[in-house]
Each structure stands twice: as structure tokens, then as C-alpha cells.
């Protein structure tokens, strides 16, 4: 349905780039408070990752056997583990590593899977077939088992966790990017770009990619949470990050042995931190799309 709205003609033209984006972000957040909450949670994660190691009260690696297995108290907010390390400090410090793994793996898969998917959707033919079969092959494995295999085969390092996480997310990016590019392949503006002498790859990068970014943003946000869970899962079963490095997955794994004896805090707080991060990225996705999509700025 079309709606006559001559009033909005004048206001849009005066606004410049950044100011308009900020104003729009403010509107999106005020329209949907959940987005505001998600951005608040995201800010907490960023602060913890950036300056966490400098502000925590204890050294996350320093053991103090006298203070081992203490329940949460004013001195140790999240309690201490079996070696007497302060759980609060360890949970905060671990943020940087977990976020780092997630961000790098998502950036990697966005670049590889996104471009491969757009090319598959845009060019079709053999490109489509090859990219499609690669992602089908990846999808044929149980994804977590595949990640385990990759890390076990390539070696037990953080870099390999990043690569494994990127590989198992590859098909998700290919599918989304391919579908979106295929829709736009026949659009008039693509034809128009051809008429003005753009090469096919330039059309792909300058005409199609910007139009797919909003939906890819959502995808990235959702897979961030998934990537964090995956990294933590690998550490939980003893792959990737090695103790005593503070990492949420290892901490949950270490704490799980103590739950039966009543020391619940060792597993609970890193688990809550994981939940916090994953929940935050899941909420963020929709809000992010609303902000980056110019169509919503009416």
C-alpha cells in the first residue's frame, strides 16, 4: 500500500552521513528497547575484552591453595577454584580470548563464505556448482565433530580453532549470500551497471555486496554466538586452548567435576558468561539489520 507522506521529503536531505546514522541508531533503539539492551550487553563485553586484564582484582593465573574452593564472598565475588584462583578475575580475563576467537573466525568466514556465496548466486553455472558441492560436503559432517577433527589434525592451537570454526560456518554464509545475490542478479540496476561498463567482478563487489550487507550483518551476529559456543565446546573437551589459560569452556569443564561435591560456582559463572555473550549476539542481530539498512530510514 502506498502512503502519501510529503512531510518526510524535506527533512532527509539536510542530514549528513554520521549524524544521520547516529540519529537513526537512536531511533531504532528507542523503537525497540531490546536492541538497546543488546547494545548495552555488547558494550560490557567489549569493555571486559579491552581492559579486563588491567582492572581485575587478582592475577587470573596466580594459585593460592589456602584459599581453594571458596564459595562466592565479598573478597572473591565468583568464589575460587580448586587451585585458589579468583573465578571473577578468570571469567573477565577470558572474555578477550573467547571474543577474539569468535571475531576472527566470523571475519574469516564472512570474507570466504560471503564472497563465494555471492559469486555462486551471481555467476551461477560452474561457480555455483563448485561452491555448492563444497558446502554440501561440509554440511554432510556433524559440524562439531568436523571441528574436532580439524583441530586434532591441524594441531592444538588457537589459530586452528579459528579456522575450524570458520569452516563449519562456511555453508551458512554461502547459502544466505547465494540466495540474496541470486534475487538481485536480474535487477534493473545490475543491468544498468553493465551498460555503464562495469566488469562482472566490479558489479559483484560494488553493486551486489552493499545490498547484501544488512542480511549478512544479521548472519554475522548470530554466528558470533555460535562461534563462541563452538570455541568453548572444543576447549571443554580438551582441544584448542590449554589450561591454565582462562577460557570459559575450560573453566566449565574444570568446574563440572566439582558440581557433585557441591562447589557449583566454578562451573556456573563461566557458563553464565557464555550464555551472556551468546544471548547478546543473538539479540544484536535484528537491531543491527535495522540500523544498517537504508530502507528503514524513512
Amino acid at each position: 500500500m502506498t502512503l502519501a507522506n510529503p512531510a518526510d521529503r524535506g527533512s532527509a536531505s539536510s542530514s549528513s552521513g554520521l549524524a544521520a546514522t547516529l540519529r537513526h541508531a537512536k531511533y531504532v533503539i528507542s523503537e525497540n528497547p531490546v536492541t538497546g539492551l543488546a547494545f548495552g550487553m555488547f558494550l560490557v563485553l567489549i569493555v571486559a575484552a579491552a581492559i579486563g586484564p588491567y582492572i581485575v582484582p587478582y592475577d587470573p593465573l596466580a594459585s593460592d591453595t589456602k584459599a581453594a574452593l571458596q564459595a562466592p564472598s565479598w573478597a572473591h565475588w565468583f568464589g575460587t577454584d580448586q587451585l585458589g584462583r579468583d573465578m571473577f578475575s578468570r571469567v573477565i580475563v577470558a572474555t578477550r580470548l573467547d571474543m577474539g576467537i569468535a571475531i576472527f573466525s566470523v571475519a574469516l568466514v564472512f570474507a570466504a563464505g560471503g564472497i563465494a556465496g555471492i559469486a555462486a548466486g551471481f555467476f551461477g553455472g560452474w561457480t555455483d556448482r563448485i561452491v555448492g558441492r563444497i558446502s554440501d560436503t561440509i554440511m554432510a559432517f556433524p559440524l562439531f565433530v568436523l571441528a574436532m577433527g580439524i583441530v586434532a589434525a591441524l594441531g592444538n592451537t588457537v589459530t586452528n580453532i579459528v579456522i575450524a570454526t570458520a569452516i563449519i560456518n562456511f555453508p551458512l554464509y554461502v547459502r544466505v549470500a547465494r540466495a540474496e545475490a541470486a534475487i538481485r542478479r536480474q535487477s534493473g540496476f545490475i543491468q544498468a551497471a553493465r551498460l555503464t561498463g562495469n566488469s562482472e567482478w566490479r558489479i559483484l563487489l560494488t553493486q551486489i555486496l552493499p545490498n547484501i550487507l544488512p542480511i549478512m550483518m544479521v548472519q554475522m551476529s548470530l554466528t558470533m554466538g555460535y562461534a563462541i559456543l563452538n570455541a568453548a565446546g572444543l576447549s571443554f573437551i580438551g582441544l584448542g586452548v590449554r589450561p591454565p589459560t582462562p577460557e570459559w569452556g575450560i573453566m566449565v569443564a574444570e568446574g563440572s567435576a566439582f558440581i557433585v561435591s557441591g562447589e557449583w560456582w566454578i562451573a556456573l559463572f563461566p557458563g553464565l558468561a557464555l550464555m551472556f555473550a551468546v544471548f547478546c549476539f543473538n539479540l544484536l542481530g535484528d537491531g543491527l539489520r535495522d540500523i544498517v539498512d537504508p530502507q528503514r530510514r524513512t
Binding site: 535487477s187 534493473g188 540496476f189 543491468q191 544498468a192 551497471a193 552493499p210 545490498n211 537504508p294 530502507q295
Partner: peptide, 11 residues
């Protein structure tokens, strides 16, 4: 082009 909306890149 026929459709002025479709023939302009929305971004």
C-alpha cells in the same frame, strides 16, 4: 529502464 525503482541500486 522500465521500472525506475528496480533500476537504481538502493544503496
Amino acid at each position: 529502464f522500465q521500472d525506475p525503482t528496480d533500476s537504481l541500486n538502493p544503496r
